[in-house]
Design a protein around this nucleic acid. Structure first.
Lengths: 179, 179
DNA sequence: GTCTATAACGGGATAGAC
DNA sequence: GTCTATCCCGTTATAGAC
C-alpha cells in the first residue's frame, strides 16, 4: 500500500527544509528523493510556498487548541503547570519536534509568510498567558523562557539521553514558573 | 570623509543578511544600496561567502577572549556570575547584538560554513564552562539557558523598555545559575 | 497522476575597459 | 576602484503529451 504522494512530499519537504533551510532546498531535490520529476510536484502543490502553508497549518491548529484551553481555565499556578505539560506532550510527537525545528530555523527566510507570522503571534500569546497583565518584567521573561526550556533537547550536546533531557527540561521549566 | 568602502559593505550586508536571511539577500541588493554595481563588490570580497567570514571573525575573537578568561579562573559561583556579566556587556554593543541575531537566524542556511561551526562550538564550550563535568542534567540545562536568557531582548514583545528587559534578563539568568 | 521540454528569470561570478 | 557586458548555472513555473 503506497502512501499518499501528497503526504510523502510533505514529509520529504519538511525534512529537507529543516536540514538545509527553505531557500537552500530546491524542488528538484524534493522531486528526486521522491523519485519523480519537479513537474510532478506542481500537480500536488501550486507553488513551493504552498508546501510550507500545508505544513504549518497542522501545527497552527495544535497551538490554537492549547491556547483556547488555557483561556478557558482560571489563571492559577496549576493551570500554568499544565500548559507546560500539554505543550511538552505535543512536542514529543516526532512530527512536531521536527516542525518546531523547521519553524525556528526558517523564521527569517519565511518572515513574510502569513502562516509563519500567525505561528509567531500564537506562541507569543501562549507565553503571555503564562504571565498575565500584572506580572513584573522578571516574571514575564522567566515564564516565557519556561516554554523555551522545553525545547532544550535541540541544542543540548549529545552526552545526555533523550529521557534525561526531557525530564531535566521540564524541571527547569517548572522552576521558571515559580515566583 | 567617506567611510571605508569595505566597512560599508560589511555594514549593509550584515543588516540585510539579518533582516532577510543570507540566501534571500543578493549581491545586487547590497551593491544597489551602496550605490555601486555588483561587480564592484568583487574587488573587495572574493565571494559572497567571504563577506560572512569577515563578519563572523570579529565575534569569534570576542567569544574566544571570554572563553580564555573563564578557563583561567577558578570554577566558582563568582566566576560564573562574572561570565554572564561580561557576556551581557559584549551583547550590549550594537554591532554585537546584530551579529548575534545574524548568527541565530542563519544557522541553517550557513550550516556548512566553517566559521559558523566554530562559533557554535565556542558557544557550547562557554555554556559547558558554566557547568563542569560533575553537573547534573538539570544544572547543565539550567546554566546553558542562563546564557540564552541574556538574549531575551530579541524576542520579548515591545511594551517593556530596553533597560527593563536588560535588568530583568540578568536577574533571570542569575537565578538559573543557582543550584 | 506523471512525464518531457522549455520558458523566463535571477543568482553568483568573471573579463576587460576606463 | 568602479564600470559594462557577459557567462553560466540553477531555480520556479508552465505547456502539453501520455
Amino acid at each position: 500500500m503506497r502512501e499518499d504522494t501528497r503526504t510523502r512530499i510533505q514529509e520529504i519537504a519538511l525534512r529537507l527544509f529543516t536540514e538545509q533551510g527553505y531557500e537552500a532546498t530546491s524542488l528538484r531535490e524534493i522531486a528526486e528523493e521522491l523519485g519523480v520529476t519537479k513537474a510532478a510536484l506542481y500537480y500536488h502543490f501550486k507553488t513551493k510556498d504552498d508546501i510550507v502553508t500545508s505544513l504549518v497549518d497542522l501545527r497552527i491548529a495544535d497551538v490554537e487548541e492549547l491556547l483556547e484551553w488555557v483561556k478557558s481555565q482560571p489563571r492559577t499556578p496549576e493551570t500554568r503547570r499544565e500548559v507546560l505539560e500539554r505543550y511538552a506532550a505535543k512536542l514529543k510527537r516526532p512530527q512536531h519536534i521536527q516542525m518546531a525545528r523547521f519553524l525556528e530555523r526558517n523564521q527569517t527566510a519565511l518572515r513574510d509568510h502569513p502562516k509563519l507570522s500567525r505561528m509567531r503571534d500564537l506562541m507569543l500569546e501562549l507565553a503571555n498567558q503564562l504571565s498575565g497583565p500584572e506580572a513584573t518584567p522578571v516574571e514575564r521573561i522567566s515564564r516565557s523562557l519556561a516554554l523555551f526550556a522545553l525545547h532544550a533537547g535541540k541544542w543540548m550536546p549529545g552526552d545526555l539521553t533523550e529521557d534525561e533531557v526531557d525530564k531535566a527540561s521540564m524541571e527547569v521549566a517548572l522552576r521558571l514558573l515559580e515566583p
